[in-house]
Amino acid sequence: MTLANSPEQSVSSAELPDGSDQSIESFVRSHTGWMLSLAKRILRDDSDAEDAVQTAFANIFKNLQAFDGRSTAKTWMHRIVVNQALMTLRKRRPQSEEEIDELLPVFDANGCRIEDDWANPETPEGLLQRTQTRSHVARLIDALPDSHRIVLILRDIEELSTADVAEQLNITEANVKVRLHRARAALKKLLEPLMRGDAL
């Protein structure tokens, strides 16, 4: 499994703190950055993300002795942060799940796609050279319902496997695939004005 946005792609169990104050402080300073980024991506709120990281660290320290080394320490810690962020997310008021339907592809009675012509679409490379593009895209990603946005983040950004995402969200692998495709399709629709050169 590859984990995004981490300076260390893996943490060996030897790098886990040995219990001394110095090793614990060093451990916290080394890992707070990527853990906070991950929590922010899921929660979209700085304060909630900091709370999630703090609780995740507490859970890591509490379960340090029980870490069995069957996965890398980084994978184990990543899972704890995701679980904590998801717990926070579940406490929020659920969003309507219907709003994504109108963003999905449309077909006629013969099963043929109804798609506007793409004359000269802008390339991702060209769009990313503009300073406003990333903040615009980030706002549109945030517009997706959480149930779909989280699957997109865990699969396409954090690069977890379908099986790992299914386990963490407690849904089937088939459901992960359906949500991922619907999230990508909806996002493509939301990004169309930008990619067609009609936005920014």
Binding site: L128, I141, D156, L187, L194, M195
Partner: peptide, 8 residues
């Protein structure tokens, strides 16, 4: 591609 570039 835009999504990945934005969030990473």
């Amino acid at each position: 591609e835009l999504t990945k570039a934005t969030l990473t």
